[in-house]
């Protein structure tokens, strides 16, 4: 009888597990409707990266990527605060997306072919053009990659950074020792205390940490001039749900279009223009695109969060990342920020 009882318990346990991860958990085909019904967007973000996604003592999230989550919520639900943030490490992020734990991942994630092909993810509009760099303490006097022969190089585990580092150093025949950490909180002390001679990551991240380290009275840091990769960062969603993908993408692109039109959070209320494109954009006269977003979604986004330039200025200028003249500037200023027309 005991063995039968055990079997019964096992069967019951398995049933519970099965129920917990039933077919719908990973998202059917209509996430947009689900999100609207649920009334909250679950957004995967970084929680330890100053400027992009960081959580403070009170548990509040802030940063560039975090604000983009708020943009999506404002666009889809009309309420920028209707976001449930999920802090993820680099290693967890794709699994969280695939399993349906989050609706959208905005966590400084580089768009690559393998990720597009093998992670079941669809990458959307690139919101930040980055490149990988290497930071060293100024006191070490390192000026080029060749100086770093045999060095311990700190890197975040499970990132494209790790692969670029290996590829570039091997191509140049420079021996090195990668020291992989699961997150920046563990990596930073190891770097500051000299367990690694160098820290490689996206230049944006290095700039943020350079500012933080120097701001907190640490040693002066130098970012080497070599930029060893292209890192287009943007939001991504699961494959196979184009309605949700379009809703997220157009919400995010609206911030760039607003910037181009000169619409920001201070003037969006009552903004008038004779330009039919602007009228369409702001949903005047009930212009419908059929994307599935509310007619006034742009007004909600811009009034509650702001346009791209405002979001950038709030989060990235303070950590020392300039906007003017970089690839993240508007196309009309020589940058790469170019969105399809709104008509």
């Amino acid at each position: 009888m005991r063995s039968m009882k055990r079997l019964a318990v096992l069967v019951l346990g398995l049933t519970l597990v099965a129920a917990a991860c039933g077919d719908d958990a990973s998202g059917g085909g209509d996430l947009l409707a689900d999100v609207v019904e649920r009334g909250v967007v679950r957004c995967g973000v970084n929680d330890v990266l100053p400027g992009f996604g960081i959580v403070d003592d009170t548990g509040a999230f802030s940063g560039f990527d975090v604000e983009l989550c708020r943009v999506v919520a404002a666009g889809v639900l009309g309420d920028a605060d209707a976001v449930e943030f999920v802090g993820l490490t680099a290693g967890e992020r794709f699994t969280a997306l695939q399993s349906g734990e989050i609706d959208v991942l905005i966590r400084n994630t580089t768009w690559t072919a393998t990720r597009d092909g093998q992670e079941g993810a669809t990458f959307l509009f690139t919101t930040f053009y980055d490149g990988q760099g290497i930071m060293v303490p100024t006191a070490t006097g390192f000026t080029s990659l060749e100086d770093l022969a045999d060095a311990n190089i700190c890197v975040l585990q499970a990132t494209t950074t790790e692969l670029n580092l290996t590829a570039v150093f091997n191509a140049r025949g420079i021996p090195f020792n990668p020291v992989g950490f699961a997150d920046n909180n563990l990596l930073r002390p190891a770097y500051e205390e000299g367990q690694c001679e160098a820290w490689t990551s996206d230049v944006s991240q290095l700039t943020a940490f350079k500012a933080t380290i120097e701001g907190e009275g640490g040693a002066a840091q130098t970012i080497l001039p070599d930029v060893i990769s292209k890192e287009p960062l943007g939001p991504l969603v699961r494959d196979g749900d184009s309605a949700w993908a379009q809703a997220v993408e157009w919400s995010v692109m609206a911030t760039v279009q607003a910037w181009e039109f000169g619409i920001d959070s201070s003037n969006v209320a009552g903004y008038t223009s004779d330009d039919p494109n602007v009228k369409n954009f702001l949903g005047v006269d009930g212009f419908e695109t059929g994307i599935g977003l509310p007619t006034d979604f742009v007004v909600q986004i811009i009034s509650q969060v702001g346009n791209y330039e405002e979001i950038y200025n709030r989060n990235l200028i303070p950590i020392g990342l300039p906007l003017a003249g970089t690839p993240n500037d508007l196309w009309s200023n020589g940058g790469l920020m170019y969105v399809p027309p709104y008509r």
Binding site: G91, Q157, A158
Partner: peptide, 17 residues
């Protein structure tokens, strides 16, 4: 502590596609 044991390596490998 950045020790390359099997879980750590597997997670790295998963993160890389």
């Amino acid at each position: 502590v950045a020790y390359a044991e099997i879980t750590s390596l597997t997670l790295t490998s998963i993160g890389n596609g």
